[in-house]
């Protein structure tokens, strides 16, 4: 099952590369909504951990088991791949040594394009996101790395 929050606790851990060195960390997200976007309608700004922002350039996204870079997701032909509602999207963030053991303040800023809503809302950096989810506990959680 998914957690009701947009930012999932399950899946929050450091990641290891083939020779076992910690190369980053993972964060799960879900759309708290009645539908997910087509891949090319997904919009992402950052994962923020203890006030450090990790943008799309250091992230890859696992959707239905397939790994994408942000640029790959936005390719026009990816409008035929649907983000499924039944499972989270897992974001892999590159960060040498990963996150220290202990508690971290984690936030995430992502959204989708909805054609049935005026275009003005498409810009993820509009103040709309901050207003709606600035300190929404669904998008900002204290989570522990073991």
């Amino acid at each position: 099952m998914m957690e009701i929050e947009a930012l999932q606790y399950k899946g929050f851990r450091n990641l290891k590369d083939e020779n076992g060195d910690i190369c980053g960390f993972q964060v799960g997200i879900r759309f708290v909504a009645y539908r997910g976007p087509w891949l090319s309608q997904f919009r992402f700004a950052y994962v923020k951990v203890d006030d450090v922002e990790y943008g799309p350039d250091v992230c890859t996204f696992f959707v239905n088991g397939v790994e994408y870079t942000y640029a790959e997701m936005l390719k026009p032909e990816n409008w035929r791949v649907k983000v499924q509602m039944q499972a989270p999207i897992y974001i892999h963030v590159k960060k040498e040594g990963g996150l220290a053991m202990g508690c971290h303040r984690v936030s995430v800023k992502f959204s989708e394009i909805a054609s049935y809503i005026p275009e003005r809302m498409d810009d993820i950096n509009s103040e709309m996101f901050e207003m709606m989810h600035g300190n929404d506990p669904a998008y900002n959680r204290d989570m522990i790395i073991v």
Partner: peptide
Amino acid sequence: HWVESRLYPGQREASLEE
């Protein structure tokens, strides 16, 4: 269901075929 018209970045109106 939805007939999406802004399917990918830069698109303002989807084509008839899409």
